[in-house]
Amino acid sequence: MSDFKSKTSISRRAFLKGGAAAACAVAGTSSVARAAAALEKGEPIATLLDISRCVACEECVYACRQSNADKYPKPEKPFPVMYPSRVPVMDWSDKTDIVDRLTPYNWLYIQTATVTVDGEEKEINIPRRCMHCVNPPCVKLCPWGAAKQFKNGISQIDSDICLGGSKCKQACPWKIPERQTGVGLYLDILPAFAGNGVMYKCDRCYQLIAEGKLPACVDACPENVQTIGPRDEIIRKAHELAESMNGYIYGEIENGGTNTIYVSPVPFDQLNKAVEKGNGKPHLDNVEDAMATGNNLARAMLLAPLAGVAAAFGRFYKISREKKSASGGDL
């Protein structure tokens, strides 16, 4: 963590330097400079995905795999026997070439929907990865602090700390994190009785951001599907884009807001019906703010001391009156 922090402080200079140079050189990369400025101010940066442009070439998928290859799990085999027997062994280490879903070795894939719009059949391709929520339940509910969120909007699972309990996956509205057994801290504690590996997901190439570079998937896209920048600016651009194509937005308000904003010419409920969903294949449904109930209860918690104080004073007042009446009003 401290390592990342130091990298982040370096990154601000590097990002600014790189961003400014790039902005001068190429108009298209001015978003890098603005993202760098947002990073300097400690503001979240977000990505905008214009999915009308995506041709499913999977350049982003392979760029992601190349960029993050050294972060992928290297499990030790044979895996320790885990108790009780219901604990599932999740092993993807022999299936690292899978690219049609999310796995611990594939943090981005292209989801395809065939939909009919105005009588015309259309194929819409949607790059899917972690949404990097504004208030990520995976991070906030992690019982060990293994999942982290940075001020730049990135949420990341620390593979050195994660025990692979998969709570983050269950808490995630899109069930994004994927588990690999036989790797991580649990092996050094009680591998038979607690933990089950490490959870993996997109960390938006934090190491590249730290060097002032674009995330691999953004950089590799030949169709410029993705744009990165300060969240406020990305939201504004998303609305402009949606207006220009008479389109729809996903990710702005879902789960209380995310840092991944999709713009589509087709309504997302239609896309959601058309895409293949299931394990490693997230939906595009409406998502309520998962942390809202907890945070409303947290506000109510502020009233608890007042209630206790009021009850104590009420009892004191009652007893005082009883004493007064018992002594005939003459204390």
């Binding site: 209860l297 109510a300 918690m301 009233l303 608890a304 001391p305 209630a307 206790g308 104080v309 009850a311 104590a312 004073f313 009892r315 004191f316």
Partner: peptide
Amino acid sequence: FASVLIGLSCYVVLD
């Protein structure tokens, strides 16, 4: 229940 505990603690101390 954390709220209940906080309220109860304040009540007991003040009482």
